[in-house]
């Protein structure tokens, strides 16, 4: 991963913004987010509720249309397209290469369809001429791959527990042989022991199928476990983006530092000193001037109040903070915590 090879970049998110407007009020859910995704890696996107991470994910898969920006995607055929501006016809063959796994395993499966129909739906839509036998064979293969008992395919979703439902959702996302999967809080609704099963499954599948994940979650320990790189979002902006271990060990943005210090670690001996954050997340309809974080930042200077920092490279990492170079912030001490 250390050597940057341009040809490996599969997805370039460039200046993506999303503005929701209703009744004359504009809410900027996502503002000018850019990052690159390389083939086979996992990008974690973390942040607190309302930071725009889910909206960003939905913009990338084009479940909703972004207001601005481009998502340059390198297709399986090798050409680079702007995924956000393709029309319906151009979209059809490419859409299947970017898929999504949802948070709620209950609302993401249509309760009125059998598992066979749910997993097979994408095939029917994209390869309507495929014979039934062949399709069912394919469904069985993919179901076995995600650890579903293939004798249960005629059942309806209500027969399955949350973890198994999530496997069905994964099978549905995988059956079109996608390159990129956006996992929107894919394990957050599951119990701890089931979470581990699904995380392991996602990792195994990634290795086997060379998948690329964009893993959106509020759970920092899960993200740290699964991601190669992590992007931290605050109030619609990406404030820091970099390799996981570096970012967790020595954050460069004060918000990342505060966020990390708040994570409860499953070890009674680890007592982190929390860095208190003043106030609350501002209303995205009425964001503060300058750096969005300045009101709550303990390193705030005058410049932060007036001038919004751009995402720039510091120490092999992208940070949006005026003082990123000079501050030395605290993260997790990896050597101490063995």
């Amino acid at each position: 991963m250390s050597e940057i090879r341009e040809k490996d970049v599969i997805l370039q998110v460039r200046g993506v913004s999303k503005v929701f407007s209703s009744k004359g009020v504009n809410v900027r859910a996502v503002t000018n987010v850019s990052f690159d995704v390389r083939k086979g890696e996992t990008i974690g996107i973390v942040g607190e509720s309302g930071c725009g991470k889910t909206t960003l994910g939905r913009c990338i898969v084009r479940a909703i249309d972004a207001s601005e920006g481009e998502v340059i995607y390198k297709t399986l055929a090798g050409e680079e397209v702007n995924f956000l501006t393709l029309d319906k016809k151009q979209m059809k063959p490419i859409r299947k290469e970017i898929q999504m796994i949802f948070q709620d395993p209950y609302s993401s499966l249509d309760p009125r369809m059998t598992v066979l129909d749910i997993i097979g739906e994408p095939i029917r839509a994209n390869y309507p001429k495929m014979p039934k036998k062949e399709r069912e064979q394919l469904i069985k293969e993919i179901a076995a791959k995600v650890g579903l008992n293939t004798t249960y395919l005629m059942r309806y979703p209500h027969a399955f527990s949350g973890g198994q439902r999530q496997r069905i959702g994964i099978a549905r996302a995988l059956i079109l042989n996608p390159q990129i999967i956006v996992c929107d809080e894919a394990v957050s609704a599951l119990d701890v022991s089931i979470q581990a099963q699904i995380i392991n499954l996602l990792r195994d599948l990634q290795k086997e199928l060379e998948l690329t994940y964009i893993f959106i979650s509020h759970d920092l320990s899960v993200v740290e476990h699964i991601s190669d790189k992590v992007g931290v979002m605050y109030l619609g902006r990406m404030v820091e983006f970099g390799e996981t271990e570096k970012l967790f060990a020595s954050p460069k943005h004060p918000y990342t530092e505060a966020l990390l210090s708040a994570v409860p670690v499953a070890d009674p001996d680890v007592k982190m000193d929390r860095i208190p954050l003043q106030g609350e997340i501002p209303n995205p309809a009425n964001p503060p001037s300058g750096c969005y974080f300045h009101e709550r930042c303990r390193y705030c200077t005058e410049r932060c109040v007036t001038e919004a920092p751009e995402l720039h490279e510091v120490d092999g990492r992208m940070v949006a903070c005026h003082r990123a170079e000079e501050l030395s912030l605290r993260g997790f001490n990896y050597d101490e915590m063995q």
């Binding site: 022991s193 581990a196 995380i199 920092l220 320990s221 967790f248 670690v265 070890d267 997790f332 990896y334």
Partner: peptide, 13 residues
């Protein structure tokens, strides 16, 4: 089942 943040990464949970 839980990954302890900050600990060395095991490949699988």
């Amino acid at each position: 089942s839980v990954h302890k943040i900050g600990s060395l990464k095991a490949d699988r949970l």
